[in-house]
Amino acid sequence: MTSEEPNTSAPAQAETEPAETPLVPEAETERFESPPILLPAGDQPVDPRTITLHRWVGLLSLLIPSAILFLVLTLTWLFGGLPGSVYGSLVTGLGLPIVALGLWLWHWPVLHYRHLRYRVDRLGLRIHRGVVWRRSISVPTTRVQHTDVTQGPWQRRYSLATLTVHTAGTQGASISLAGLEHETALRLRDHLMTSRDHGE
């Protein structure tokens, strides 16, 4: 912290009785025993296979419609519905943006992956994400109402999963983290739920 460090009530709080919800520095929060499940410390990336997954999903959702489009155009041209010059300019006019979009869809998952980090510790779950808009959200374990681990058909192929944490909140009523390895997702879920029960 710089000299601009906010002068909050931390010293004042030391005078009041500690039972009152104190501003606990991370190290002092020993309210839960050491987590029963071994978790890697620090910020973690999600599973790198999520890049492949995103690429496939992105490219397929681009390639299938464009293939159909080109097929229709080509057939129309072959059967004389379109003059050759119009066909040529249509193909280049549509083709170039589609190729550009394809390259972007190839590259984007890497950026997305690089900027997605999570951390699960005694306090709870923290997620950092966003390439252009950087968001980070923290959910204390004591606020976790319930959790879901879901696997879509594509995710199952790569044994990936999405962990969703539900709180009693409003905008942040459910916070999900996609691209975890299924095993990891289950372990995180167990950790969040058990330390929640410890906290109760």
């Binding site: 912290m1 710089t2 601009e4 460090e5 906010p6 909050t8 919800t21 104190p22 501003l23 606990v24 520095p25 991370e26 929060t29 309210r31 005694r122 306090l123 709870g124 923290r126 980070s136 923290s138 204390p140 374990t141 004591t142 606020r143 009693a168 906290g199 109760e200």
Partner: peptide, 23 residues
Amino acid sequence: DSSVADEIHRRLFAAAAATEFDW
């Protein structure tokens, strides 16, 4: 300032984690 934001974030997270939410 983002350093201040980090600090507030850290404090609020820790403080919320240390309390129970009572329905």
